[in-house]
Design a protein around this nucleic acid. Structure first.
Length: 325
DNA sequence: CACTTGACCTGTCCGC
DNA sequence: TGCGGACAGGTCAAGT
C-alpha cells in the first residue's frame, strides 16, 4: 500500500525530522527485515549522521555521512515512524491506553514487548494512529544520539532495510530496472506510450503496475487513474488508443499529486513519519468504493480481479474494448 | 521470451 | 463465542 505518494510523504517528513541527527545504535529483531546488517557492518552506521533522504519508485534511501546508504522498502505494511525525545516539550507522547511499557530496548533480540499496545486508530477519528512504540510489529529501531528514535514497523515482514555503500546504490539490480518517475517533468506522453506499449500482450492495469514500465504506481493509484481516463483495467494494452494513454498519464499525475497533497492513502496500516494517516481514500473515486455509486454516472462501482489484484471500476464509465487497434 | 500465478507473512473479517 | 478460510497487495521466483 505504500505507493509513490505514501513513500514520498514519509520522505518529506523524515527530511524535516532526522537530517543531521547522529545514529548511536541500531537494533533489529529479525534478519529478514535487515538482512545484511551483520555485526561488522554496524561500524558504518553508528556515529554516522543523516545527510539526505531520497526516494526512487517506492524505495527510500537514507544517505549517511559514512558513505553508506540505508535502502528501505516498506512493501505492504511497513512504517517508518519517528519518535522525538520525550523530555523535549510537547509532541509524540503516546498514551493511548495509559499502560506505558517503559521497558527500554536493551538487547537486540528482545525489543518486542509483550504488550501489543494500543491498536491503531482505535476509536479515534484523529489522524494519529501510532500507539506506544516499539510494538510487536517493530523490526528495526534506529537510536539517535539525542534520544530520539526511528522505528521500522512491519506487520507482515515483507519490507526490509538494507545497507549499501552509497556509491553502489545506482548499480543495485532493482534500482536499475525501475522505469521513469511518473511525476518527472521530462517524461513525455510519447515516452510513456512507448513504454506501456512494450507490454502489448497484457492488460493495461498489469502494465501500470509493472515497475519497469513506470515506477511507483500500485493498486490504489492504478485503479484511480484508470477510472479518470475511462479505461477498463482489463483492457489489453494493444486495444487502448494513444489518445487514451495520453489521458491516462494526465490522470495518473492528477491522482498522484492529489494524494501527495492529502498525505497519501491509509487503508489500514500506512502512516507517515509522524504516525499520521493519509486522507486520500476519503476522496477516492473507485478504490474500496465497490457497492457505492460512481460520482460521474451514478452506476454502481464493482470489484473484480485483474492482474491478480482486487480491482475497482465503474462498469458504465469504463467500458472494455475487445478489438486490437 | 512474455506473461501469469504462487509464495512470502500476519491480522482482520465473514460465515457457520 | 470460536474456528476455518478467504482476503489484503508489492515483489520476485516459479510455472505455463
Amino acid at each position: 500500500m505504500p505507493e509513490l505518494p505514501e513513500v514520498e510523504t514519509v520522505r518529506l517528513g523524515l527530511s524535516r525530522l532526522i537530517i543531521g541527527k547522529v545514529i548511536s545504535s541500531v537494533r533489529h529483531d529479525n534478519p529478514k527485515s535487515f538482512p545484511n546488517a551483520p555485526q561488522e557492518v554496524k561500524e558504518f552506521i553508528t556515529q554516522a549522521h543523516i545527510l539526505e533522504i531520497r526516494r526512487r519508485a517506492k524505495v527510500l534511501l537514507i544517505d549517511l555521512s559514512s558513505d553508506y546508504t540505508l535502502v528501505i522498502h516498506l512493501k505492504m505494511t511497513g512504517q517508518l515512524v519517528f519518535i522525538g525525545n520525550k523530555h523535549q516539550g510537547k509532541g509524540k507522547s503516546n498514551k493511548l491506553l495509559g499502560k506505558a511499557p517503559k521497558t527500554p530496548v536493551t538487547s537486540t533480540l528482545s525489543l518486542i514487548p509483550s504488550e501489543p499496545s494500543a491498536r491503531f486508530g482505535a476509536g479515534h477519528p484523529s489522524s494519529s494512529l501510532t500507539g506506544e512504540l516499539p510494538d510487536k510489529s517493530t523490526r528495526v529501531v534506529i537510536n539517535f544520539a539525542d534520544g530520539s528514535k526511528l522505528f521500522f514497523n512491519d506487520q507482515r515482514k515483507f519490507g526490509w532495510v538494507k545497507l549499501f555503500p552509497s556509491i553502489e546504490v545506482p548499480n543495485i539490480n532493482f534500482m536499475q530496472k525501475f522505469g521513469p518517475e511518473p511525476l518527472e517533468e521530462n517524461l513525455t506522453a510519447s515516452d510513456f506510450i512507448l513504454r506501456i506499449r512494450k507490454r502489448a500482450g497484457t492488460t493495461i492495469k498489469a502494465a501500470l503496475l509493472d515497475q519497469t514500465v513506470i515506477a511507483g504506481v500500485g493498486n490504489i493509484y492504478a485503479d484511480e487513474s484508470l477510472w479518470g481516463a475511462k479505461i477498463h483495467p482489463a483492457t489489453k494494452v494493444n486495444a487502448v488508443s494513444d489518445a487514451k494513454l495520453k489521458t491516462l498519464l494526465r490522470e495518473l499525475r492528477l491522482v498522484l499529486n492529489l494524494a501527495l497533497d492529502l498525505g497519501g492513502s491509509t487503508d489500514r496500516n500506512y502512516v507517515d513519519a509522524e504516525g499520521k494517516k493519509g486522507s486520500y481514500l476519503n476522496f477516492a473515486r473507485v478504490f474500496r468504493r465497490d457497492g457505492k455509486l460512481c460520482i460521474r454516472c451514478e452506476s454502481e462501482i464493482i470489484k473484480i480481479r485483474v492482474a491478480g489484484r482486487g480491482t475497482h471500476l465503474c462498469p458504465i464509465c469504463q467500458k472494455i474494448v475487445e478489438k486490437s487497434l
